[in-house]
Design a protein around this nucleic acid. Sequence first.
DNA 1: TTTTAATATCGAGATATTTCGATATATGGA
DNA 2: TCCATATATCGAAATATCTCGATATTAAAA
Lengths: 102, 102
Amino acid sequence: MDIEKSISALNNPARRRILEWLKDRSNFPPALPEHADLEGVCVGYIQEKAQLSQSTISNYMGLLKQAGFVIAERHGQWTFYRRDEKNIRLFLAAVQDELLKP
Amino acid sequence: MDIEKSISALNNPARRRILEWLKDRSNFPPALPEHADLEGVCVGYIQEKAQLSQSTISNYMGLLKQAGFVIAERHGQWTFYRRDEKNIRLFLAAVQDELLKP
DNA sequence: TTTTAATATCGAGATATTTCGATATATGGA
DNA sequence: TCCATATATCGAAATATCTCGATATTAAAA
């Protein structure tokens, strides 16, 4: 949990929006039948929704992953990203501590 | 409460450190007798502690103020900065909402 | 095994942030 | 009024971030 890296990752509206979208799978097109049992959303869907280039989204998802906000899982040629709820809560607790703890 | 501006202001270790120092007045030298009744810490003391140039600190305190994290009060030639606890809590609630609310 | 599709990485231009020293502004005192 | 002190603002160099298109990598399919 590197608070520096996490705040940095959050310091961008597109990345924050992606984190919000990932709260609800139905913000994206339905998964392919062969991916029905997998959690997360593939990069292509995120890109389409965010309207940014493929490389930008790949980069952004990498930053969100390094920051601990998402988990990546590769299946075949797809990478599926989903929120890391536990780490997100840890981050929030850390910021709260840093800002409020006496 | 502009969450964009606030996150941006937090996205810097020195500014976060200043916010922490301001939790406790005793992190700084004692106030001059004629300022004994005033809240907050003058720019000079913050600069001394942060070991950054005067202009940098003045700039930083301006950013923290615009972000809503501190309140500035001018008394004579001094500007005293203190934390805006209420707004800090509002910010934390907003981030928590953005990150967790369904 | 060649092709296609999905994602990652690279290199670069545009823009933003960091941080400084120099200068301007405001205030209080001699 | 003139000077010293505290802070703010300006202009600029160094560095970081944003974002892209081009290319590399990986995996599946024909």
